[in-house]
Design a binder for these strands. Structure first.
Length: 649
RNA sequence: CGCGGGGUGGAGAAGUCGGUAUCUCGUCGGGCUCAUAAUCCGAAGAUCGCAGGUUCGAGUCCUGCCCCCGCAACCA
């Protein structure tokens, strides 16, 4: 970079929805952004890193109602939790914006008005399914079994007055922008998805206001409406910098907008690559330079969910492994465009195999030898061997490699490169065999240089590591009583002054962890606690019925005599014997939980007096009684053997 | 034929413009003893989902098929 003025770099994460405590998958995004932000600062950029919380919407309104508190109090609490976790992860954000902040609300109102005045927003009617008790509109995709996902009750079609944004007006311009800026949507594989699925078929106008709930930014010229999520949430990227829709924007805005990078989850890529640019076009503001939709961190292929007791939270991880171990894990373990995976066992393996064995042990043995052979004094005597050049070369090329990886946002690769240096240094120790050099007086000068080189190269590596694991890098520097190096000199050796004394009390950077003893019991505890929390009593008890109502249900014991999976569905097709020579055909949505083989021979309970129904072209004449909900389903069987056809009462 | 993503040694991944298949973990054998039962070296192990095709040559390009994962539908 030239000596001129520092280049600016504005990076944001998506703002976190303040309805619940974020799990490690959500936390990953901020850590990733933090690593990028820190590295850019290290390279000399003037960085502004913004994150925050999205605090409006019906979900929050309802959650607050359930706790009998004001929505504002509710979001204050959750936003506090979120910010505490971001801080716990040692993220270096410059600004934490909340969509309930006054300046934000004011600007959102102005932006909305401006769109309306320009004719980009018009009033119409929103049609959809409506759940009356919850007072919520639901899209087809939100419905669960055709019913309300929250209360499970019937929904009915309804209309609501709403404002819409005329997306079509800007679609061509956006399409052109995307084609002309191949780097705009990252990873590129997602670009086609957006273009083919949303732009090419023609953009639908977007509903941007609601009257069905109150907890949102009021529309200034129509008090029955509140601004619906996207205009509100996306605007944070400019309001946080002091954007002013009808006047002079603040200095920060002038300096930092447009954003260099919006780092978001792949699920909301559509909103950031289509709606957000169009809003900006409508405002006459420049578009962000790049939007990166990162993959998800899953739990061994499954989604995290409390009812499975497999949600992993950042604070639990930090308690058991330490901040930098968690940062290392999420940054290193995430592939570039596939979803990543996390388990307690995997984190343990990484901590032991890489942080303790490769890095921690390297620092430890280097410090220990310096103390043992030279009372901790580092001295470059100039006695070199050809192998030293290889180390110098490794240090020199490391910077370029990390630069390139970070440029491509391949943060995991950058970390791998740094650890490749540490592995190389472990090898260097074996190649030079300091303990052999220590045996004779005449090889002592060589020994001194070897230890000096080691310390020197470790410091260089630690300097580059700082963006990813700040605490660890500083701890390493402290052990050598040295300083982390600036970007300009981190690829050069010889930076340690001769005579520097290393610590005589080496600290273990990462202790090895015994999974069975230290982690497993904790993991179990956490799991139990989550499942207990989810097991809700009373609450969703159905209305009372009479004994007569119950008597109307004809349930029989049956035996599955044949069973096959129905192709391309979640269905199993069972043939069930419900009496001598009498069988019925039943379809059940349990293919995810049982294989056809294990179903055959099972005793089940069948409801036999339901009207037959056709699914996937096959007839179902009854229903197998199961226990459970969407996440876990088990078949109910009689506790002792009874003949098929036995009635339940 | 719903949309999208993916199938590479036991596990997880890399593989840019087609040219000897790479890394980490694990396994086995060996070395070393400074170090956190750490470290270093070596070996075994992949017909790169299957079948065709283009090519002097394909994990990499084309066609068809199979399987897995999200989302949608179905889930009496």
């Amino acid at each position: 970079m030239q000596e001129q003025e520092k280049k600016k770099y504005y990076i944001t994460t998506a703002i976190a929805y303040a309805s619940a405590k974020p799990h490690i998958g959500n936390t990953y995004e901020v850590v990733l952004a933090d690593a990028v932000a820190r590295y850019k600062r290290y390279q000399g950029y003037d960085v502004f890193f913004q994150t925050g919380t999205d605090e409006h919407g019906i979900k929050i309104e309802n959650a607050a109602k359930n706790q009998c508190i004001e929505p504002q109090r509710y979001v204050d609490e959750v936003a506090g939790t979120i910010r505490r976790i971001w801080d716990l992860m040692n993220t270096s954000y410059d600004k934490f914006i909340r969509t309930t902040d006054e300046y934000h609300v004011e600007q959102v109102q102005k932006i909305f008005k401006k769109f309306y005045d320009q004719g980009d927003i018009y009033k119409s009617e929103y049609e959809g399914m409506y759940c009356t008790p919850c007072e919520t509109f639901l899209t087809a995709s939100q419905l669960k079994d055709g019913k309300c996902p929250d209360c499970g009750r019937e929904v009915s079609p309804a209309k609501e007055e709403a404002y819409f944004f005329r997306m079509s007006k800007y679609a061509d311009r956006l399409m052109r922008h995307i084609e002309e800026h191949p780097e705009f949507i990252q990873p590129v594989s997602r670009k086609n998805e957006m273009v083919n699925n949303f732009l090419k078929p023609g953009l639908q106008d977007l509903c941007v206001s609601r009257t069905s709930f109150k907890w949102g930014v009021p529309v200034s010229f129509d008090s029955r409406h509140v601004v619906y999520v996207w205009v509100d949430a996306l605007s944070n990227y400019i309001t946080g910098l002091g954007y002013n829709a009808d006047g002079e924007s603040g200095e920060l805005y002038k300096k930092f907008w447009p954003a260099d990078l919006h780092l978001i989850g792949k699920d909301i890529l559509r909103f950031h690559t289509i709606y957000w640019p169009i809003f900006l076009m409508a405002l006459g503001e420049p578009l962000p330079k790049q939007i990166f939709g990162h993959p998800w961190l899953n739990r061994e292929g499954e989604k995290m969910s409390k009812s499975k007791g497999n949600v992993i939270y950042a604070d639990d991880l930090v308690r058991l492994f330490g901040v930098d171990a968690v940062r290392y894990f999420v940054l290193h373990e995430m592939p570039f465009d596939n979803d990543g995976s996390i388990t307690w066992g995997m984190v343990t393996e990484r901590v032991n195999g890489e942080l303790a064995n490769v890095l921690g042990n390297l620092v430890n043995r280097t410090v220990a030898m310096s103390n043992k052979y030279f009372d901790g004094i580092l001295q470059n005597t100039g006695v070199t061997e050809p192998v030293d050049a290889e180390i110098a070369e490794a240090v020199k090329t490391l910077k370029a490699k990390v630069d390139q990886s970070m440029e491509d946002l391949r943060v995991a690769d950058a970390l791998t490169e740094i650890f490749t240096l540490f592995r190389r240094l472990n090898k260097y120790i074996d190649e030079t065999a300091p303990w052999v050099l220590a045996r004779a007086e005449e090889t002592k000068p060589r020994l001194a240089t070897v230890l000096y080189n080691l310390a020197d190269a470790i410091l260089a590596g630690a300097s580059l590591l700082h963006s990813f694991m700040p605490e660890t890098a500083e701890k390493i520097a402290a052990q050598f009583h040295g300083k982390l190096r600036g970007y300009e000199e981190c690829d050069l050796l010889g930076g340690i002054p001769n005579g520097t004394k290393v610590t005589d009390q080496p600290e273990i950077l990462f202790a090895r962890i015994d999974y069975e003893k230290q982690i497993l019991p904790e993991e179990e505890k956490i799991k139990q606690a989550q499942m207990a929390e989810v097991a809700k009593p009373q609450e969703d008890k159905l209305p009372d019925i009479s004994i007569d109502d119950f008597a109307k249900i004809d349930m029989r014991v049956g035996t599955v005599v044949a069973c096959e999976a129905v192709k391309k569905s979640k269905l199993l097709h069972e043939t069930i014997r419900i009496g001598a020579g009498k069988t019925i055909s039943v379809l059940s949505g349990i293919a995810k939980y049982y294989t056809p083989e294990e179903m055959v021979g099972k005793k089940v309970i069948v409801v036999v007096n339901l009207p037959p129904r056709t699914m996937k072209g096959m007839l179902s004449e009854g229903m197998v009684v199961c226990a459970g909900d969407g996440d876990k389903v088990v078949i109910v069987s009689p506790e002792k053997d009874v003949p098929d056809g036995t009635k339940l009462s």
